[in-house]
Design a protein around this nucleic acid. Structure first.
Lengths: 346, 346
DNA sequence: ATGAAAGCGCTAACAC
DNA sequence: GTGTTAGCGCTTTCAT
């Protein structure tokens, strides 16, 4: 492999006996360059394979045309879809995307903010760890707009796009109650994040609206291994172990599909029928949910819509920093399948 | 939000009555600056919240300390893990990561190479679409080292890290044969990529080694929707539909876990027992595989190892461009579960 | 140990 | 239309 010096504007200029400036305009501006010159420049550029140096361009323009994406865990299917939709939109708008993975670690997040500052991104889409936020204030204060996604940092008053987790949970719970369940259980993640808290709220509200009371042992957190995005932060395994020692009710709402998966095994082992003995709902509508035995009723998350909206908000914010921050919650959709469809109960 | 000018070396210099140069060295170099000056500079830098401008630095140094990752589909769990492991390693080495999603589209890939060239990345880890490769030659020839991952582009003679898909498929097939299956079927993706081809080879070889012949209708491609990374390129649904009209054998090897999922439903609907009537294997060991009914025998892919190795190869290549390209295949692991464990047959 | 000067590749003023 | 000049923020000679 030979060490190659990349062609610059100067190479084109000297080959054609023009000034660097003229070449620059010929390649960029609409007018202020004769058609002949422009054609000659473009021909020469193509011939030697000229590619503009974004670094130099960014330095003078003060913008790198780069956005940051700070995300906790790509192995979570919801976030994977988010990455795809965000990358798609960002690229369509002519920006590049810098990816930073935090693994639910505040320390990693802190380092990520430093990287964002150094790289001088024009803005960032952030799934915050929600443990600390002073470093985010620093980013915002240095003029880099942020859009929080999926979880908010209300202290900072930035744009935010999320999912109405409370509503999803409310609907799943109400659906179970409508199906005849009375003794309900909520199995949640033990992460200190608002998504989890919102689902708990939704569960409680649905119970309350149905005239049912909720005792403390009806809302349970499944112990979770953390800080390892090479695996998922939650596993069917953990829910399986946890549920083995559980006094099972007639309806279970879970905070994610993986929990439902572990649960299904426990129920099978105990010889309980789903949904006739116990009806269950998942959360996330992962690709396998429809193909479980029985197919899983679950809450479908609008990942692509969330991602796209986040990028659009960010780009708008880049144009006008003055508008007030907007908080958007996108409504998830309850997908009813056989794990809750118990004709016997209706 | 106030428009903020980021502090520069000059701000520190003028505040302290020093030259920009001295400040630069105080912040960087080991020596050649008095301890007093260095302390003063660092104090002032911290006070005003100085963050070096990577753009300017990169421009003069000729390296942006950025690597590219060009990947087809983050929603594929294998690639999601790859992204995590690569980002982790890249960041640990002080580099930033530019993410580009191609969605299995040659056109997107072409555009991705332009972005890589413009951004002047120091190198790139690439999961190639394998449809065209002239644009990759151009990237390599302009001095940007590439490491191909999971799929190779042999025409270009770059470093490559992959998975020994043939071996995984060989082992899965041999395992089914050892379990008593004689009439076997391979259900594969219909993507024109080497991973699929390699699995087919492994299947054929295992059959041949067992003295079994393979007719053309024993290797089938499941029709696949493509070009939409917001969803997966393959779905249980597709395999389900396809398998409905299939003459079922006593053992089925699938090219990914999603196919196995669709298959399980078909078998259940036909009243066939797994593994007693039909034994099946998946490919990928997705998080749900162990929790299916029955738990799925499948081939676990060493995603993290592949990702880490790829980054290490790339960084080595950045140091010495002269060594010969290395091709590494990492061995996957057959994970045996109940979908193939049929005591009755042994 | 510190400063002055040059330049990375590009674009934006301003002349002509 | 095109060229000249200046400068983005930083690092690297080379003086002092």
């Amino acid at each position: 492999m030979t060490e190659v010096r990349r062609p610059t504007l100067r190479d084109i200029a000297s080959a054609l006996g023009l000034s660097v400036n003229t070449v620059s305009r010929a390649l960029g501006d609409k007018d202020s360059v004769s058609a002949r010159t422009r054609a000659a420049v473009q021909a020469e550029a193509a011939r030697i394979g000229y590619v503009p140096n974004t670094l130099a361009r960014s330095l003078v323009l003060g913008s790198a045309m780069t956005l940051g994406l700070v995300i906790t865990n790509p192995s979570n299917p919801f976030y994977a879809q988010l990455i795809s939709s965000i990358e798609l939109r960002v690229r369509a708008q002519g920006y590049s995307l810098l990816l930073l993975v935090t693994d639910e670690s505040a320390e990693n997040e802190q380092r990520a903010t430093e990287a964002l500052l150094r790289s001088a991104v024009d803005g960032a889409v952030v799934v915050p760890v929600q443990a600390e936020w002073d470093h985010w204030r620093r980013v915002r204060d240095s003029g880099i707009p942020l859009v929080f996604v999926n979880r908010d940092v209300p202290e900072l008053d930035c744009d935010m796009v999320g999912v109405d987790y409370e509503r999803g949970s409310y609907e799943a719970t109400s659906h179970l109650i409508a199906g005849g369940a009375r003794k309900l259980l909520l199995l949640e993640e033990d992460l200190p994040i608002t998504t989890t808290a919102d689902r708990i709220t939704g569960f409680r509200r649905a119970m309350s609206d149905a005239g049912l009371t909720v005792s403390d042992d009806q809302v349970r957190a499944v112990p979770t291994k953390r800080y390892d995005s090479l695996a998922l932060p939650w596993q069917p395994e953990e829910a399986y172990r946890f549920a083995q020692s559980l006094d099972l009710p007639d309806g279970i709402v879970t905070g994610n599909d993986y929990f439902a998966l572990g649960l299904l095994r426990v129920l099978a082992e105990r010889g309980l029928a789903v949904p006739d003995d116990v009806a269950i709902t998942g959360y996330g509508d992962h690709p396998y949910a429809a193909y479980l035995q029985p197919p899983l009723t679950t809450v479908r998350l609008p990942a692509a819509e969330v991602g796209t909206t986040a990028v659009d908000l960010l780009l708008q914010r880049l144009k006008s920093a003055t508008e007030r921050p907007r908080k958007t919650l996108i409504r998830p959709e309850l997908v009813v399948r056989a794990s809750t469809l118990s004709p016997a109960r209706l």
